[in-house]
Design a protein around this nucleic acid. Structure first.
Lengths: 112, 112
DNA sequence: TTCTATCCATAGAATATCTATGGTTATGCG
DNA sequence: CGCATAACCATAGATATTCTATGGATAGAA
């Protein structure tokens, strides 16, 4: 917390699911997408990314298949499942609720 | 993540510092304050609260002294130090930056 | 051919939070 | 009076998440 974290703990699964909701992608592509959309504020390290994808697979929220990329490389493409789409909705609403609640605590008068 | 977390990991220290920025309080009071301001969305368990306060003490961001409460009980009152006030500023700006970045990822078109 | 970017993945450390536990004391209630 | 409950403090151990470090493979550019 004293040193800049790469991302807010607890939000990675949501970010991945959201990214895959737009279109199937391989892991590396997911990380790049999050990095770019966030203007380089959020960085998904590979050591966080792949374990997270394993979690999502285990939960049945995504499925994977090996394919070739446009750049002629083998890569594992992940696709959101119906359960994953549902889960994304749950996580989004919990997240919004949390953020709103934190906002109420932070915005209370007196001091920065 | 599947089960509602009591709070967003990584935000507890900031919430405590912010609460103490308003006025010195004892641990129990801090937890109550956060719970109430957040309309019961955020719950700080005692097992999270006291270790967090120890962390803040160690970092020199708060100082503590035993006093009596209005209800005639002994309690440890925590006060924000100058360093703590500075730290709060840092954490607030990092948090805002993170939230904004996550917002950009989440608000990108296509799918919920 | 060497370097860089693209890709996958795991092990182990560090960190944060939760659950469970245990203790003290003031006060209200039956 | 006895008991429950709310007000308080604190720690140990489990759990989960993320990061650092490592290792590997290949396409294409320099």
């Amino acid at each position: 917390m004293a040193n800049k974290p790469d991302l807010l703990p607890g939000t990675l699964d949501m970010l991945i699911l959201k990214t895959l909701a737009r279109a199937p992608l391989h892991g590396y592509g997911v990380a790049l997408s999050i990095k770019r959309l966030s203007d380089d504020v959020l960085t998904v390290e590979e050591g966080s990314l792949y374990p997270a994808l394993q979690r999502l697979l285990l939960q049945g929220w995504v499925k994977a298949e090996w394919k070739m990329t446009e750049t002629k490389r083998r890569a594992r493409f992940y696709t959101l499942t119906a359960a994953g789409r549902k889960q994304l909705g749950i996580e989004l609403s919990q997240y919004e609720q949390m953020i709103a609640a934190i906002g109420r605590v932070l915005s209370d008068p007196k001091e920065a």
